[in-house]
């Protein structure tokens, strides 16, 4: 195929400047001229390999169109778009177009990195000068970096927002005085445990003589007592349990996977014993105690938080009635 009209004769350095990735082949498909940027890519051929004069098929593997090895076939089959991989062990492919030149059967191929530009820039340490000013290579690199920067900022924003959300959630679930969970948190734990159907026990704890401490020693003393109870409860729960302050001097402890009445009784009595230990407040001793009502989820057919809390309240009432500093387990809460 011969072009009918020759428009211009291009000096070889002009060709190099306009097409820094060109490959000019003679009719035997041997390299006559190679653009400086493409030369950098091919510089990774084995040592002493001379690119000028080398055969096209020794330099490149044709990836598209398929089943083709010669440049002439590439031009005939692919029209003006093909894909090559240099035989240098690189992973980066090259995209190109080409044409026959007038008269003497020379072929001019112009190659580009295509989407492999970013990896190629790194692999071949390319600079601004390696690209023709008409190419969008700089813009593509710029865009990739700008995008990475925006993504990084967005990831940072997400992390900060997530951190703030977790802190807010934690705050909304915590009783500020004792550091225990609050009523809302206890309700949601109960809700979840009922829904999951895992067996658990609910201890409802109410302080005895707390009002007396508040009345005689003041609210600061009362607060200190509450904080102390908070510490004691915290020490008695495992990670899977939940201790919460649900009212003035009212607490609940949700104990997961414990249903043995004897075990529950021991836990409650241990808490009562610790709470009953005298506490020093500004040189004075303040003494409180605790009554505990216990119910178990397994004693209800379909346990739900409202009925469990009501039953625990009845158990607590029974404990108070029995003379305080007592723990009462209500075995059949609804009978």
């Amino acid at each position: 195929m011969v072009t009918p009209q020759t428009v211009c004769a291009l000096p070889i350095d002009g060709l190099a400047r306009l097409m820094p990735m060109h490959l000019l082949l003679d009719r035997d498909e041997r390299v006559v001229s190679v653009g400086p940027t493409l030369a950098r890519v091919l510089a990774q051929m084995p040592e002493h390999f001379e690119v000028i004069g080398a055969r096209f098929q020794d330099l490149f593997e044709v990836r598209s169109p398929g089943g083709v090895t010669h440049a002439a076939e590439v031009l005939a089959r692919a029209g003006n778009r093909f894909r090559l991989v240099p035989r240098t062990g690189t992973r980066a492919g090259l995209r190109g177009l080409g044409t026959w030149l007038a008269d003497d059967g020379q072929m001019l191929l112009n190659l580009s990195f295509g989407i492999d530009l970013i990896t190629s820039v790194r692999e071949f340490a390319l600079t601004d000068a390696d690209f023709a000013a008409t190419e969008l290579a700089m813009e593509l690199l710029y865009l990739a970096e700008a995008n990475a920067a925006v993504t990084r900022e967005l990831r940072g924003l997400n992390l900060r927002l997530e951190g703030a959300r977790l802190a807010a959630e934690e705050e909304a679930m915590t009783d500020p005085l004792t550091g225990l969970r609050n009523r809302r948190a206890a309700d949601s734990v109960l809700e979840r445990m009922c829904a999951n159907g895992v067996p658990f026990a609910l201890l409802h704890l109410d302080l005895d003589y707390f009002k007396a401490v508040n009345d005689t020693l003041g609210h600061a003393a009362g607060d200190q007592v509450l904080e102390n109870v908070g510490r004691i409860l915290q020490e008695h729960v495992r990670a899977e349990d939940c201790a919460a302050r649900i009212g003035g001097d009212e607490f609940v402890v949700i104990v997961a996977d414990r249903t043995d009445p004897k075990v529950l009784q021991v836990i409650a009595e241990r808490i009562i014993a610790r709470v009953s230990e005298p506490l020093a407040f500004q040189g004075t001793e303040c003494r409180v105690s605790a009554s505990v009502g216990i119910v178990r989820s397994v004693d209800m057919v379909r346990p739900d938080p409202v009925r469990l809390l009501a039953a625990a309240d009845r158990a607590l009432y029974a404990a108070k009635h029995a003379g305080r500093s007592q723990a009462v387990l209500l075995l059949l809460p609804e009978s």
Partner: peptide
């Protein structure tokens, strides 16, 4: 100034 993006 390297055109290649520095590793993070």
């Amino acid at each position: 100034f390297d055109l290649a993006m520095p590793d993070r």
